[in-house]
Amino acid sequence: MLRGSHYCFFVFFAHNALLLLGIRSHALGDSNCKQQYGRAGATIVLSPGPISEKLYKALWKFNQINLVDINGVLNGHQFTDRSLLNQNNYSLTIQDLRTTDSGDFTFVSSGEKGQRPTSCTRLKVQEGLTQRPTLNVINITETSEESCEILIKCSSTPDQDVSYRWTVNGVMINGSTLQYPLKPHKGDTNFTCTASNMISAVSESQSFNCQSPPSPPPPGDLNGFLIIAGVACIALISIVGFVIVICRFKKGHAVASDVNEELTVYAEIDDIINTNIMKPCSVYETLENKAPPISPKPQAQTIYDKIQFNRVQQLQNT
Rank of each mutant, 00 (worst) to 15 (best):
L129N: 12
M198C: 10
R116C: 05
S205T: 14
P133Y: 08
D159L: 07
Y164Q: 01
C247Y: 08
Y164I: 04
R122E: 00
S155Y: 06
K124M: 03
E204Q: 13
I140Q: 06
K124C: 05
N197C: 08
V243K: 04
L123E: 01
S215G: 07
I237Q: 06
Y164C: 01
Q211E: 12
E145F: 02
L151Q: 15
V168E: 07
A235F: 03
S147E: 15
V137M: 07
T141L: 10
N190Y: 06
N190M: 13
F242T: 11
T189V: 13
F208H: 11
N209L: 00
S238W: 02
S156I: 08
I173Y: 02
R165I: 09
V162W: 04
F208L: 14
G230R: 07
P158H: 08
S156D: 05
S176A: 15
L178A: 05
S200V: 06
K153F: 12
Q115E: 13
F225W: 12
I138P: 01
T118G: 04
Y164K: 00
E204W: 01
P218N: 06
C233A: 15
I140S: 11
S196D: 04
S147F: 04
I173F: 02
Q115K: 12
L222A: 14
L236R: 03
P214V: 09
G114S: 11
I234P: 00
P213I: 03
C247L: 14
K186V: 09
S155P: 07
I227W: 12
